[in-house]
């Protein structure tokens, strides 16, 4: 059953140096507060997994937390490059970053395979593309029924999945609505999971019988962090702060400006600061 904990306790208990960790979120529900907690706790040698590493992974990479990145699209969407990721790849600063690069289709299939307890995913992928030449984890498998040669990639089975979600009930069941990304697959594929939520409610209330819910017994720890996805967004709570994504380009472009920003806005802050950033009331859940 999921344990309710402070974010600090949840990260300390479940994320260790050297772990593989998927902090997922497909634009929506990116777990910024939890990622910042990992930075404050000084986690090192992480293998970061995510389809769309954006600003949060730029921050983790720039702070030297990661030794490897497994991904399929790394950028600041609609804005440009991730400058800290590029500095690590092109110049080895603050440390070298190993890349394992896939396409979205392969990553999505690999999460699905992880959740399904399969060793690999099969897909029709990468036809005529160069990635299989540089990624030895892109291989082929022959269909035993038709003889068709398909692409095979290893299942994603992270040590830890970290996601943000909308709300939990008091029993620790977790509700996700809106753009789902691979939030559910990441949690079900991982050995342990940390979920931050906007609020805890007595009852989820009226909802579709097909609502996306992670039962309490699939989640390791839940921390209540209103605004915890800022500057990403939480459907029905606050919008994506596109102005911040635009502003990040200048902040991250130089090592000094990046370091100063991280010191002031991450190292010196805590989970309780997110509600105000997201434009929510800072005390307790919204009514």
């Amino acid at each position: 059953m999921a344990v309710f904990a402070s974010l600090s306790e949840a990260v300390a208990a479940n994320l260790r140096d050297g772990d593989s960790v998927a902090m997922e979120g497909f634009t929506h529900l990116i777990p910024y507060a939890a990622g910042h907690e990992a930075i404050r706790q000084g986690r090192r040698d992480l293998t970061l997994i995510r389809m769309t590493p954006d600003i949060l992974y730029d921050q983790l990479i720039g702070m030297g937390c990661a030794r490897k990145l497994k991904f399929s699209w790394g950028g600041n969407p609609g804005v440009g490059s991730l400058h800290r990721m590029r500095d690590a790849v092109e110049n080895g600063w603050p440390r070298a970053l190993e890349l394992e690069e896939h396409s979205h289709a392969a990553m999505a299939n690999a999460y699905d395979a992880g959740a399904a307890n399969l060793p690999f995913a099969a897909l029709r992928g990468y036809v005529g593309a160069d990635l299989p030449k540089v990624n030895p984890n892109i291989r082929t498998v022959t269909c035993p029924f038709t003889g068709e040669v398909l692409t095979a990639v290893p299942a994603i089975r992270p040590d830890v999945a970290i996601i943000h979600a909308l709300k939990a009930d008091r029993a620790g069941n977790v509700l996700i609505e809106g753009i789902l990304g691979v939030q559910k697959e990441a949690v079900l594929a991982a050995s342990r999971s940390i979920v931050t939520v906007e609020e805890v409610v007595d009852d989820f209330g009226p909802r579709s019988p097909n609502a996306t819910i992670l039962p309490s017994w699939t989640v390791t720890a839940i921390a209540v962090v209103p605004g915890g996805a800022f500057p990403s967004y939480a459907h029905g709570y606050y919008k994506r702060n596109n102005a911040f994504y635009l502003a990040w380009d200048a902040i991250a472009r130089e090592r000094d400006s990046f370091a100063a920003w991280m010191t002031e806005n991450v190292l010196a802050k805590g989970p309780g600061d997110f509600a105000a950033l997201a434009g929510l009331r800072s005390e307790g859940p919204r009514s």
């Binding site: 969407p77 999505a108 789902l180 990304g181 691979v182 967004y233 459907h235 919008k239 994506r240 994504y245």
Partner: peptide, 28 residues
């Protein structure tokens, strides 16, 4: 949308499916 997953896209969509389903059922 600035990003491929802005809330505006979900708010105005007929339906929203998970990303593995998007690539498996709909594209592939």
């Amino acid at each position: 949308p600035l990003s491929i997953g802005d809330g505006e896209l979900c708010d105005t969509a007929l339906t929203t499916v998970a990303v593995p389903e998007m690539f498996r059922y709909w594209l592939q």
